[in-house]
Write a protein that binds this DNA or RNA. Sequence first.
DNA 1: TTGTATTTGTTCGTATGTATC
DNA 2: GGATACATACGAACAAATACA
Lengths: 261, 261
Amino acid sequence: MFAPARPVRAYERVVEQIEAAILDGKLLPDQRLPSERELVKEFAVSRSTLREALRVLQSRGFIQSRAGDPQGAVVQHFSTDSLRGSMAALARVEHLTLLELLQFRVMVEAWTCRLAAAGRSDEQLEEMDREMAAMRAHIGGDSEAFAEADLAFHAALARAAGNKLLEISGSVVHDVVLTLVSSKITASRNRRKQMQESCERHARVLSAIREGDPAEAARISYQNIVDYYSVYLVAADRQRLVDMGAAFGADPAAAAGSVGS
Amino acid sequence: MFAPARPVRAYERVVEQIEAAILDGKLLPDQRLPSERELVKEFAVSRSTLREALRVLQSRGFIQSRAGDPQGAVVQHFSTDSLRGSMAALARVEHLTLLELLQFRVMVEAWTCRLAAAGRSDEQLEEMDREMAAMRAHIGGDSEAFAEADLAFHAALARAAGNKLLEISGSVVHDVVLTLVSSKITASRNRRKQMQESCERHARVLSAIREGDPAEAARISYQNIVDYYSVYLVAADRQRLVDMGAAFGADPAAAAGSVGS
DNA sequence: TTGTATTTGTTCGTATGTATC
DNA sequence: GGATACATACGAACAAATACA
């Protein structure tokens, strides 16, 4: 009959109200909040309490405040940063293995390719072509710029798939995998060759998408990940990644062979 | 040559240090932090600044503090709450459609079933049997208890798949879908029949897993989601969900037919 | 370019309710 | 129940940063 009456912290009620306003669209991105001193009056709390609330909102990515800004804090556009942070923490604390991350990435990218192959528009195809060309232009150049172009291509591909959740989760796990692997890379020998191979693979995926062949697009994207990352896996984990290929009709022998090369 | 000299907020350095200590395992779950007043001396900041830092850490799920506790804040076990929060915010702010969520869920659950069918141990099989029995025991009873048993089964299944990332993302998106759909459910007619059907479907998935048939397990889990949720989709979106079935060798006619029933 | 006013960042002191012994 | 140490909350003050005249 009665609800629990545990004390609700003052700062928490402030957070709830502002968060709800943003989530409900009553406060839009780039809009400004009133100054701290005005909010103090409005919420009838002390400045310290209000500031604790603003800090929490800031850490969740809802607002951003700068020292000395005569206007108040800025309502932020939605960002996946906090999602990335949570996921990165998950990877560290729960000790996610590289295999687990790669399995997830194979799953997401294969489905992204499938959906893109089935439903891409001509404009989206052109956009992917442009990003592909941009990647080619960076072959042999700065590896950071190449990685950026690679990311842009993946983003275009994800948009063509028409699923924002897929797009975001793909980019998040992409990041986490890279940070995990980058610590293991001693020296990237044959950078130029690697870039060329990467472009070639992306081109094959794009070709399958252009021809509207979901199964083939998924298979190639899977194969790309296996070829690129399986060297970082121990034998048992590598086998489990190769086993995923059955779902794509991949040739197990070819997968195993490419690892040895 | 020179690094940017933008001011780093005091509270941020406190957050970084404590967060790093937890992430590195120097501070373990259930351990206590020193009291605020001691931390004030250690970090050489004021009480307010320190409290802002603690609030941020609390909102990220790293610590939990209680008023009057003679000991300090408690380091929390890793929780997916902040991940859930970020994802729920994503669903609201980015206006994720039910189709997008269901596509994601189909993908995750199908792969979970695949991996479980390929790699489950006998103990894991027994555990899933137990959860299955628990679900059956709740047929016709409290629908909340049934939903809990359902969740427990999915968790056991995810553990059998051996991928924590799959397990967590599956449960998160499961939650988000339910909150999105629950607002549309006016009255759950035929609750008993729904529960029985749900059990039957779960049993078929479990059977395929027991027999080590990944493709069949994935196909059934896909079909279950289509049958259960497609009534909430508009025709165009429903078709796109049905189109996913091609990846599982599902019969398009059967999928379309079950919607009309 | 240089002040000046305003705002946020930070500190300190104090009062109050709470959990543990 | 009382004593003690704690987190919570408030308010005033100063320092640093920003925007604008």
